[in-house]
Design a protein around this nucleic acid. Structure first.
Length: 468
RNA sequence: GGCGCCGUAGCCAAGUGGUAAGGCAGAGGUCUGCAAAACCUCGAUUCCCCAGUUCGAAUCUGGGCGGCGCCUCCA
């Protein structure tokens, strides 16, 4: 598999450090609010990468943190009149509700920053010992000039960064690009004891600490949004590598933004849509499909119209799944025909195409194209008279490949309540008697209730309309 | 000022040297009591523009136009 590595600006063959095992870390949310759909992109994309690595047989250790202490947390907690801890508890809970809905698997570990303060203090102490960090009035800063490779991830040179710096130089910093590892307590802020007095950790140190604690000093994959390249990930590299003398992460993956009217969606611009709100109107899998319909490094424009397109496309896949399930209940056990043998051979081809796409830097758009090719073939090849074996093979592959993408997780068949069943029976009777007026009336009635009836050669097929 | 990305049919989107995937929308047809679903057919002689390299370029090089991002919290 090849992955685009931000560090080298190239696609590289992915080879994990430990055979058969992948250790990856992805920057998680700051839990001060519901997350928006721009935040959802890396969650969905890197969940998909994780699923694909597992599909390929790797054991994946996946860590995604929660940032539960920083300026935004403190500000919001004050506004709400609750503690930072209470705020964090609440939105971690809300995070899981939305993430679960989107089919994002739980990470192996979901560490919280505030539960690793001791480890952070230890790492900061080590950096001071090594002479790459210094303390001023209870604040500790990382000395960027002491780390010659600073800027290697973002492709920036220290002097250029400084020239363009819009940062106000904080009192006590030796260098404008130096960043806080530890912040002295200000009145009213939560604080922890440390060798430099009461205070709290800077943002960047948490990811270094939690990544190394759970995954070791050198991890395979570190992922996040493009806006984290600088300064967050740059700083993580500086801290971690200055402390250990070893490469911190071997492959750095960054997803592109979600735009609204071609502008980056962000909290500060106010042009964001929370996942919570979108899910009132759309099925979560529609959101997931939308994210996967473009390559993860390209920007994608978000709009309701795009979601509707995704919804229609997803429905095509669900129709295929529903058809196969329906056929499986009716298909006959018999020898495969020559045609069916050819068909099964073609199935293997779609699987190869799918894997080639995913192996090429997680090209989910191309992988979906392979699935759509397969769906067309299934639809034209299989019918009521197909052999059960052929139908089952097709179903198994569709289920397997869409499963890697986290799609088609629902069973389109649902228990019907007796009233609906009775209506369908009544309609069947009417159809037998060629009472088309009554039959159509019942069909319309059910449609209004979100139940779609299709008359197939094998009997009535019941579909449930997705939210829209 | 530094670093970087993008511009492919009405819309979305792969493809990055060998002659334009896939999806949505639309048109016609087949099937159907009518539908729905599905299937078949139709859509870029062409990939923002210009020049160059090449037997050959959407794909490489140079220039231009247009859009966007990072360099500050941000997925």
């Amino acid at each position: 598999m090849r992955l685009y590595n931000t560090l080298t600006k190239r696609k590289e063959e992915f080879v994990p450090l430990h055979e058969g095992e992948v250790r990856m870390y992805s920057c998680g949310p700051t839990v001060y609010d519901y997350f928006h759909i721009g935040n959802a992109r890396p969650f969905i994309i890197f969940d998909t990468l994780r699923r694909y690595l597992e599909y390929k047989g790797y054991k994946v250790l996946f860590v995604q943190n929660f940032t539960d202490i920083d300026d935004k947390m403190i500000k919001r907690a004050n506004e709400e009149g609750i503690t930072v801890k209470e705020l964090g508890d609440r939105f971690i809970n809300e995070y899981f509700k939305d993430a679960d809905a989107l089919g994002i698997k739980r990470a192996t570990f979901h560490p919280r920053a505030t539960q690793h303060i001791g480890d952070m203090i230890a790492l900061i102490g080590k950096l001071i010992e090594k002479g790459v960090a210094y303390e001023v009035n209870g604040n500790v800063y990382f000395d960027t000039s002491a780390f010659p490779e600073y800027g290697k991830l973002s492709g920036q040179k220290l002097e250029e960064l400084e020239a363009g710096a819009r940062v106000e130089v904080e009192e006590g910093k030796r260098n404008p690009m130096d960043f806080a590892l530890w912040k002295a307590q200000k009145p009213g802020e939560p604080a922890w004891d440390s060798p430099w007095g009461k205070g709290r950790p800077g943002w960047h140190i948490e990811c270094s600490v939690m990544a190394m604690k759970y995954l070791g000093q050198t991890i395979d994959i570190h992922a996040g949004g493009q806006d984290l390249i600088f300064p967050h990930h740059e700083n993580e590299i500086a801290q971690s590598e200055a402390a250990t003398g070893k490469p911190f992460a071997r492959y750095w993956l960054h997803n592109g933004y979600i735009n609204v009217n071609n502008q980056k969606m962000s909290k500060s611009l106010g042009n964001f849509f929370t996942v919570r709100d979108i899910l009132k109107q759309f099925d979560p899998e529609v959101v997931r499909f939308f994210m996967l319909s473009a390559h993860y490094r390209n920007p994608i424009n978000f709009s309701e119209d795009m979601l509707r397109q995704a919804q229609s496309a997803l429905e095509r896949l669900y129709n295929c799944k529903a058809n196969l399930l329906h056929m499986m209940e009716n298909a006959v056990e018999r020898e495969l025909s020559e045609e069916e043998i050819d068909f099964i051979q073609r199935l293997a081809g779609y699987k190869v195409k799918f894997e080639e796409a995913m192996d090429d830097d997680i090209n989910t758009a191309d992988a979906l194209a392979a699935i759509f090719d397969m769906v067309r073939d299934i639809n034209s090849q299989l019918s009521a008279s197909s052999s059960k074996q052929a139908v089952e093979r097709a179903y198994a592959l569709l289920d397997e490949l869409t499963g890697v993408l986290g799609l088609l997780r629902k069973d389109p068949r649902q228990e019907l309540d007796p009233e609906i069943k009775a209506l369908i029976e009544k309609r069947q009777q009417a159809r037998k008697e060629k009472n088309w007026a009554l039959a159509d009336q019942i069909r319309d009635e059910l449609r209004a209730r979100g139940i779609i009836l299709e008359d197939t050669p094998q009997g009535v097929r019941v579909l449930f309309k997705h939210k829209d």
